[in-house]
């Protein structure tokens, strides 16, 4: 049931509501959180940014879920990448200073997985944003018309859970 509502929600976001930019930015910010393995200070800050900026929260949640799975699969690679960065000789002084200042340790930057996945997420941020934006535009232009004709889509849309969701959405002003 969770996966059904997850797909429904995602398709709904893609089809209507906010602009492709808002959806893509929400999705890209969500990817930053999703790739991070644990609760960190930067994760909390990104959540606050998502809440403050006018970006799509549902897209962010979708991205968090999706990128958590990706983070799990690529865990060994992120660990190795983080280890490589944290043991780079030129950065040693910088990391040592950071290690000694207040607050910075709360980011857990000295954890190989946090470092590896965060740097990867930052590098991927722009590509994820533009890819998502492109995908939303193309989806709305071409794909949506085709998908709404699929039987499976009709079944999903007419399910009681979905109608309940729609009702709550209209009441609470959620987007």
């Amino acid at each position: 049931m969770f996966w059904l509502s997850f797909i429904r929600k995602f398709l709904k976001i893609l089809a209507e509501g906010q602009t492709p930019k808002q959806i893509a930015l929400g999705f890209a910010l969500g990817s930053l959180i999703g790739l991070s393995p644990m609760l960190t200070l930067q994760g909390l800050l990104i959540w606050i940014i998502i809440l403050i900026l006018d970006v799509n929260i549902s897209a962010a949640i979708v991205a968090v879920t999706l990128f958590k799975i990706i983070a799990f699969i690529f865990d060994p690679a992120f660990h190795a990448f983080g280890f490589f960065i944290l043991t780079l000789e030129p950065f040693k002084d910088f990391f040592t200073t950071l290690y000694n200042v207040p607050v910075a340790p709360l980011t857990r930057f000295n954890n190989t997985l946090v470092m590896g996945s965060f740097i990867s997420a930052v590098i991927l941020f722009i590509p994820v944003y533009f890819s998502m934006k492109f995908f939303v535009i193309k989806y709305r232009e071409k794909l949506h018309e085709k998908i709404i004709k699929w039987k499976i889509y009709k079944i999903i849309k007419q399910s009681s859970m979905f109608r309940y969701y729609e009702k709550v959405k209209s009441l609470g002003g959620l987007r």
């Binding site: 393995p37 644990m38 983070a71 799990f72 865990d75 992120f78 660990h79 983080g82 280890f83 944290l86 043991t87 040693k92 990391f95 040592t96 290690y99 000694n100 000295n110 954890n111 190989t112 997985l113 946090v114 590896g116």
Partner: peptide, 18 residues
């Protein structure tokens, strides 16, 4: 040195502290 920690845990690298 390089460890093989359980998934989603990573390895903490310690730096010299004053």
């Amino acid at each position: 040195e390089y460890e093989y920690p359980p998934r989603m845990q990573g390895q903490d690298i310690e730096f010299p502290a004053e």
